[in-house]
């Protein structure tokens, strides 16, 4: 019987600093076959385990088309992520997953809009990567990314490529002499932008963000069924049993983390 709780050994191939408390890791499985068999959808997550400390659920931030490794971007927040922050190339971690349902597969005639707040950006990065490298074809792609301070920006090394290939709006809540682009809340950016009424909108960010961002898109005439959001909850088992991530009649780890807005909007406290 397949054991969903059995993690697989993996090695950190590369560790990169994003901000003072956020790091990106390239990870590949120790066993070659595990690496070959590892297939995921953008938006899915893995449980990253550190012996003696536990596991943390983290979204995969690389394209599934990269075969040699996968990438995660992690903020130091709890026991496991603090230990990860001290790790370097060659250190071992234990991986379970991928788990959950990712973003719906974008179609050729979609106008796709990605909205990310803070540490949410890495979870939509696989789509941006795929778009820039020709794996993802859509009619149009717009991205809105907002974070608090200049020093909290993640994935900066890709900004130039993304800006060249697609429409990317990035904003900071607070002004900074080093920042030449937009300042203000992400909702202001969306308000100003031209959005196709039949856009598909993918949203991920801190819990406080969803209501306001969704309201903007509804005002623009985007139907509820075109809005998808990836939710954060305490995912522990990853297979819809332990109940920690339950929300109404849904399990975030199994039915989500990506949910279609109209299907869950009536669940109390879901966002």
């Amino acid at each position: 019987m397949k054991n969903e709780y059995q993690p697989k050994e993996a090695i950190i191939k590369k560790a990169m600093k994003e901000t003072d408390d956020i790091n990106t890791y390239w990870i590949s499985f120790l066993n070659k076959k595990d690496q070959e068999d590892f297939w995921f959808e953008p938006g899915q997550f893995v449980q990253v385990g550190v012996p003696k400390l536990g596991e943390a659920p983290i979204s995969i931030s690389s394209s599934p088309h990269i075969e040699s490794h996968f990438e995660i971007t992690v903020r130091e927040a709890g026991r496991v992520t603090k230990a990860l922050a001290k790790m370097k190339k060659g250190d071992k971690v234990f991986i379970r997953g991928p788990f959950g349902k990712g973003w719906p597969k974008p179609q050729l005639d979609d106008h796709l809009v990605l909205v990310a707040g803070g540490i949410g950006l890495p979870a939509v990065k696989p789509l941006l990567d795929d778009f820039c490298h020709g794996y993802l074809q859509v009619k149009s792609l717009q991205t809105f990314y907002g974070t608090t301070h200049f020093d909290k920006l993640v994935c900066m090394r890709y900004f130039d490529l993304w800006r060249k290939e697609t429409e990317v709006h990035i904003t900071l809540d607070n002004q900074d002499p080093r920042w030449k682009a937009d300042v203000g809340l992400i909702t202001e950016l969306i308000k100003k932008a031209k959005i196709y009424k039949d856009s598909k909108v993918f949203i991920i960010g801190p819990p406080v963000m969803y209501k306001f961002v969704i309201a903007e898109f509804l005002k623009k005439g985007v139907p509820e069924k075109n809005i998808f959001m990836s939710l954060e909850r305490k995912m522990s088992c990853g297979v819809g049993v332990c109940q920690h991530c339950a929300c109404g009649d849904k399990y975030t780890c199994k039915d989500g983390p990506v949910f279609r807005y109209d299907r869950v909007k009536d669940i109390p406290d879901i966002i």
């Binding site: 709890g78 088992c237 920690h244």
Partner: peptide, 30 residues
């Protein structure tokens, strides 16, 4: 049948009963 997964300092991983009245039941990092 709710549970949580815990590790100890010796490297053992456990599955322990937990319940939805515990305040940390839904608590995420941060």
């Amino acid at each position: 049948y709710c549970f949580e997964i815990t590790d100890d300092e010796k490297g053992n991983r456990y599955r322990e009963w937990s319940n939805c009245f515990q305040h940390e039941f839904s608590e995420v990092a941060g």
